[in-house]
Design a protein around this nucleic acid. Structure first.
Lengths: 117, 117
DNA sequence: GAGCCATATTCCTTCGCAGGCATATAGAAG
DNA sequence: CTTCTATATGCCTGCGAAGGAATATGGCTC
């Protein structure tokens, strides 16, 4: 995995938001939709993009696809994800997403791991 | 300056190399050419790209244009440049560039600050 | 002034990606 | 098997950026 490829993944706002809300833990597509408030196609495509480059991993959970950050990220990826989190800390948009995530958390908890209704 | 814009600057190999060799100190275009061994147009254009987005600053020095990292980088930029340096530390290509820079350093020293012949 | 140097800019072509719409898939439920 | 739900994929359009060739600029030097 080339360093440039990591940056190519990071140079889109939607993807940054996806990775940001993914930091606390796994999520499925419908969560992303609800948190980012973006159309399903958009989210799905960007997740596919990230997946193809190893920035996220997927696992099917019945009807739901549960995405998460890689279990064993490369040193470069780990460094950059940490850097992103650092930057996100002072970013209103990213913070709003995280706030929404927190708000929805109890709702998710009722369901399966990373699960939906 | 949006965080995404920083990543847009970082998602090209040539620009990464430019920023990498710029970390130790200011350089002029002919140095970049000699270190990266890339055509002048290519280097000049990428420097213009970085300049337009505030990732580098320029100052004319007679016939030469001396580029350097911004004097007062934003928190986000500073964080990301540090991250880049961290990643570059284990990257053969980046290390080779730095090695070339070191080799040329005495030659530069004879001339003006960041200077050429 | 003329000519030279280092660097920037313009014009062109090619390419990949974002975004949207429509449609396909895969599994669950009846 | 049919239907529903969640998600993915194909096709299209538009845009922006990379790279190269040629040319322009701006400042020296004589």
């Amino acid at each position: 995995m080339e360093l440039v490829q990591i940056y190519e993944c990071l140079c889109d706002r939607t993807r940054l938001r996806l990775l940001n809300v993914l930091a606390p833990g796994p999520l499925c597509v419908c969560h992303f939709q609800e948190i980012l408030r973006e159309p399903q196609v958009k989210i799905s495509k960007h997740l596919a993009y990230l997946r193809a480059r190893g920035l996220v991993e997927v696992e099917r959970e019945g009807n739901w696809m549960v995405y998460e950050l890689p279990a064993k990220p490369s040193r470069e990826l780990k460094t950059n994800l940490a850097c992103l989190q650092d930057c996100a800390r002072e970013n209103p948009l990213f913070q709003r997403d995280l706030a929404r995530l927190k708000k929805l958390a109890p709702k998710f908890a009722e369901a399966s791991p990373g699960g939906c209704t």
